[in-house]
Amino acid sequence: MRISKPREERRQEIVETARELFIAQGIDNTPVSQIVKTVGVAQGLFYYYFKSKDEIIAAVADHIMDSIERSINSSLERKDMGFNQRITMVVDMFLASFGILDEGTGKVTSLVYSSQLYDIIKARLTNTTTDVINALMAEGTSSGALNIRHPELMVTLIIQGLAELIGNGLRERSVILDLIEQGLNLPENSLQ
């Protein structure tokens, strides 16, 4: 017996399934036929929602970025955490949202990471992260947690540099946090 779902719910199910498959095995290694088979729908239904594989790739990138942006922006509202805790939380949300950090164990894993998908969203991700970190930097500077002469330029340097390093294979959370500490002139191990 076929289960009918509301249009938006079915579309979201296809996007989430495609996201999991793209991250697990890469975009090129994930045919539309596998996406629909995993969802349990006919291939024609896929084309009812998406004109092409490129369109589902764009929808997955939007889905990932919407999730990251919601999570990161909520971190700005957390007044119960200090500057260092919020910087660490932003890094962890990015890593978890993109599938680099296993949310259950807190360990970094490279098995579920798709560099193809990362490359597609890197520009939007860099801009979003830069905006959020700049807001945190302004707060850190005014509270005395930071003492940096050119905070906005340093944020750009750190974020663009990390974006490039992650795109080239950097997966170690401790190294990422260490680089941020060094770039922001924070004490060693202040970001955990």
Rank of each mutant, 00 (worst) to 15 (best):
I176S: 15
R11A: 06
V91K: 05
R173W: 06
S75L: 10
S33D: 15
N127M: 08
I72V: 14
T129L: 13
V60E: 03
R124A: 12
E55H: 09
S142D: 05
A42S: 10
Y49R: 09
S114T: 03
S114G: 03
K5W: 14
I159W: 03
K53Y: 04
S33R: 15
R19A: 02
F46C: 10
S97G: 15
A96W: 07
L170Q: 10
Y49M: 00
D102P: 11
P31V: 12
S143F: 03
A138V: 09
D92W: 05
A163C: 04
D28F: 02
Q12A: 08
S110F: 06
I57G: 01
T141E: 11
N29E: 11
M154Y: 03
P151A: 04
K51E: 11
V41H: 04
I100K: 09
L95F: 14
G44M: 01
M154H: 02
E188R: 11
V90L: 09
L125W: 05
Q34T: 10
F22P: 03
F50S: 11
V39M: 11
N134T: 05
M89F: 08
M81I: 12
I72T: 12
T156V: 06
Q25Y: 01
G161E: 04
N168C: 01
E9Y: 05
D62G: 04
P6F: 12
E139P: 04
I158Y: 00
N189P: 03
T88F: 08
Q85K: 14
